[in-house]
């Protein structure tokens, strides 16, 4: 058993050395495609963070001054309730605790600002979902009405903020995904070609192996392992580059103005590491598919 393992590893390494340029090309292509794929995932998460305040069809947010009592707040409650079924389909109250949780996502790129927020100074908010028939002008009337109420800090409409963000998210999400998929296909084809070349270079060896009674799997495994390792090295490279880019971005975003929205576009809570795991998995899969096709197609044992 041990001699088989050492044989397989030795042959895989020898094949790597024999095919340096093609192997490097396959690894670089898979790394670049995985990096773009990983960056797409991070970007989408960043946009999602930016849009977190507007989740679930919320079209209007009424910010209430910190420290407002439930009794003082009832005026706003009543105003919204009186519009329920007409302009407003539903609304919910997000108290200070809920707002602080949201801020942790939105201000992830600015821990210094986040550190200054607490349950006593953060505004609470009403999330308002309009009825389907409500047009923007009616919502603007409601916005103007609520703005005049006591303890209302501000009233934001999604219309003013969401359009551009949504368009950006869809644009970048779609095109970078298409680009990374195309590059992943290129990586599969390159790995496939590398393995085919490796098999061609070792055709006499394969012939002898078959003649002396080596099993199909014994012949195939070093080639499959080679493809798998290429994909995984590509994945590792992509993870390293993604980690570096994310570190630089997270550090750089602190210099952006608070209201630029960019401060929301950082990932937290191990999101990056989860996605790095996914990239490694896809890298291995790309390698396995490329080498698997080559081996089953060109190694007639």
């Amino acid at each position: 058993m041990w001699s088989r393992i050492t044989y397989t590893l030795r042959e895989t390494w020898a094949s790597f050395k024999r095919n340096v340029t093609l192997t490097a090309a396959a690894i670089i292509t898979s790394a670049v495609s995985l990096l773009i794929f990983g960056a797409t995932m991070l970007m989408r998460e960043g946009f999602d963070n930016l849009l977190v305040t507007w989740e679930d069809d919320v079209e209007m947010i009424v910010y209430v001054n910190a420290g407002t009592t439930d009794e003082q707040r009832s005026v706003i409650d009543d105003a919204l309730a009186s519009n329920e079924g007409v302009t407003v389909r539903s609304f919910r109250y997000c108290d200070a605790e809920c707002s602080l949780g949201e801020a942790e996502q939105v201000l992830a790129g600015r821990p210094d600002v986040l550190a200054q927020l607490n349950l006593d100074n953060i505004p609470s908010q009403y999330k308002v979902i309009p009825t389907e028939a409500t047009d923007v002008n009616t919502l603007r009337d409601l916005q103007a009405d609520l703005r005049g109420r006591e303890n209302v800090r501000s009233v934001d409409l999604a219309e003013d903020q969401l359009d551009l963000i949504g368009k950006l998210k869809n644009f970048f999400g779609l095109y970078t995904l298409l680009l990374s998929i195309s590059l992943l296909v290129a990586a599969v084809l390159l790995i496939w070609n590398t393995i085919r070349t490796a098999m061609f270079a070792r055709r006499r060896e394969i012939e002898v192996m078959k003649a002396v009674g080596a099993t199909d799997w014994f012949i195939r495994v070093p080639f499959m392992l080679e493809g798998l390792v290429q994909g995984m090295i590509g994945g590792l490279g992509a993870c390293g580059a993604l980690w570096f880019i994310n570190e630089r971005w997270t550090a750089g975003v602190r210099d952006f103005p608070l209201n630029s929205g960019f401060v929301s576009m950082v990932v937290t809570d191990g999101f990056l590491y989860q996605r790095m795991g996914i990239l490694m998995g896809i890298g291995a899969l790309v390698g396995a598919i490329g080498s698997g096709i080559a081996v089953s197609r060109f190694l007639d044992v």
């Binding site: 001699s3 088989r4 044989y7 006499r204 060896e205 002396v212 014994f218």
Partner: peptide, 24 residues
């Protein structure tokens, strides 16, 4: 002959045993 040019005489012969899992 179908000998492997990058292997010595010993290695060429040993190859037939190695690939069927004979111990060292």
């Amino acid at each position: 002959y179908k000998l492997l040019p990058n292997k010595t005489v010993f290695e060429n012969v040993a190859f037939a045993q190695e690939v069927i899992g004979k111990p060292k």
